[in-house]
Design a binder for these strands. Structure first.
Lengths: 324, 324
DNA sequence: CTGTTAGCGCATTCAA
DNA sequence: TTGAATGCGCTAACAG
């Protein structure tokens, strides 16, 4: 199974390799007769010719691949949505989007981008200065850091994460809760999200929220709920809907009424949120808008333009149901 | 910011490009003095040299990238897990795993693999013969089809899908239910999974199961539950946990007891399953084992070996909770 | 106008 | 240890 190259197409069509290239790429400023053109096209189709991405990338110096390095955190619905939207958005710009789901432990990030040679890298975890330099040396035009420390080059989405916490806190305040709790996830990999979300809650509530780690288990969640109850907490912001469901389960186990004794608000609007008892009030992010913003950021970085302004505040909405 | 090439490293270290290559690749059968070696290494580190994947791929004729083409279906926890495990598994073999989450509509699959030139492609949707031929012509050694029609070249995981339905049916039969219902998802993109799972149920229950499509909405789910109830159905196999939660919600709305009036069993063991009321009995697949099997399949296909035997039956387990 | 020749980009690897 | 060839496609310069 010998690889079909442009030379094969050329000889099959009785023309030179240059002509094949011109025809297949529709190179402007080249006049090639319709007859020749169709002969080349026919030959290419017949042989099933696909140009070597490697050779093309080598020659042009740029690939059209955007690589997303996923941190070690579990991929759920929301991330899945974001990735799908991002793919759509980048495809619109003629870019190919791929995701690497592995952890740093399995394969260092460097190995990955070296193997792909992307035009751009999107990362959620941030990079060291060394790594950044290495990537530039490898000809990667841009690095878009999502949740890294501000000031790193690349767009910054810390704000939306904080905004999520802010919205939660405001909703609970608005329904008369002044003593809040925060339900943190029992998974260190989620700290990168949990920290800014909690910060958002903290900054928008008069009293310091009482933070409890809530495992996804009714029994153990009940312990956290009990501590809140004893401390006079009446409203809980949960890291996400899963944690919120655990809080619900814990409250039920203690015989507490939701939202009567304890109001709960989640994040993500999972299908399960609507189906829970009581149905779960939650905060959702417009992943479509986020994806669009990210895509614009990537494009800007690739062309050296300044990074775009972060999207407005309307991309985070509270979905009011029964639990708060 | 000029790209750092091996030539730069060579001149900086005062050696030839060949030497650089030998040192950096630790090429066996080459004797290079420790002094030279360390000089090359130092120069490479200093300049932040990263070899061009394109050039390397072009020269060696093989990339170490495995590309997974995801169909249009929503990416949830389970798929996320599978991808993560797969990445780990392939990393063990020195391969780089990337996923393309876009739909065919955004960007035809051909565009993707042409842009990546992977050593192997994993697909869940199956390919046409034409596309298969094209991929081979592009030098892609293998195509692993997961849920395609049997007989396509590549390993076949249809079986586990059917097995899932089988396990559900058996569990319900074992707890005394003879008239079963099947709760199908309200999303056509999931048909590829739903069909074989339903087939598995069908093949393992005496009477034909009563199939109802269950939207993820309590109100509308209740309609489906009512029809089951009126038809004398006492046990429902749900497509997955989300659908199962909808069935639970529907039953509650009708005032039916679960599992007393209606037993429900899901698939996936989402966190929400354990937290539901009543907690959800469900079936889970050992994604670790599946990933390992897939990885072996990819390796086999890449080396031209026959495809490995499918993993045994122990990778699907019923987790018994309250709902069935 | 139409199409060709020739050299480049970068790392690998054989022969010297 | 090194010079030089090689893999594949792009494209400026050039000939019919």
């Amino acid at each position: 199974m010998p690889r079909v190259t442009s030379a094969d197409v050329a000889s099959r069509a009785g023309v030179s390799r240059a002509t094949v290239s011109y025809v297949l790429n529709n190179t402007p400023g080249q006049s090639i007769s319709a007859a020749t053109r169709s002969r080349v096209l026919a030959a290419a189709a017949l042989l099933g010719y696909a140009p070597s991405a490697a050779a093309r990338t080598l020659r042009t110096g740029r690939s059209d691949v955007v690589l997303c390095l996923l941190p070690d955190w579990p991929i759920g619905n929301e991330v899945g949505n974001l990735l799908g939207n991002l793919s759509t958005e980048l495809a619109r710009a003629g870019l190919t989007f791929v995701v690497h789901p592995g952890s740093e432990a399995d394969r260092p990030a460097a190995e990955i981008w070296k193997a792909i040679t992307p035009a751009a890298v999107i990362t959620f975890a941030g990079f060291s200065e060394d790594e950044l330099g290495a990537m530039r040396a490898a000809g990667i035009a841009v690095v878009v850091a999502l949740l890294g420390r501000p000031g790193a080059d690349g767009c910054e989405l810390q704000m939306p994460q904080q905004l999520i916490g802010k919205r939660q806190a405001h909703h609970l305040s608005g329904t008369g809760h002044s003593r809040l709790g925060y339900a943190a996830p029992d998974d260190d990999r989620l700290r990168i999200f949990a920290v800014p979300r909690l910060a958002g809650v903290r900054a928008n509530t008069p009293a310091e929220p009482l933070v409890e780690t809530v495992p996804l288990d009714p029994e153990r969640a009940a312990e956290a709920v009990r501590r809140w109850y004893e401390a006079g907490v009446t409203g809980v912001c949960a890291y996400n809907d899963e944690v919120a469901l655990a809080v619900l389960a814990g409250a039920r186990r203690l015989g507490l009424r939701v939202p009567g004794d304890l109001a709960v608000i989640g994040v993500d609007d999972l299908p399960a949120a609507r189906l829970a008892v009581p149905s779960l009030t939650t905060v959702t992010t417009d992943q479509h808008a986020i994806a669009a913003h990210l895509a614009v950021g990537v494009l800007a970085a690739m062309s050296g333009s300044p990074e775009p302004v972060p999207p407005g505040g309307d991309l985070i909405r509270v979905i009011v149901r029964e639990s708060a």
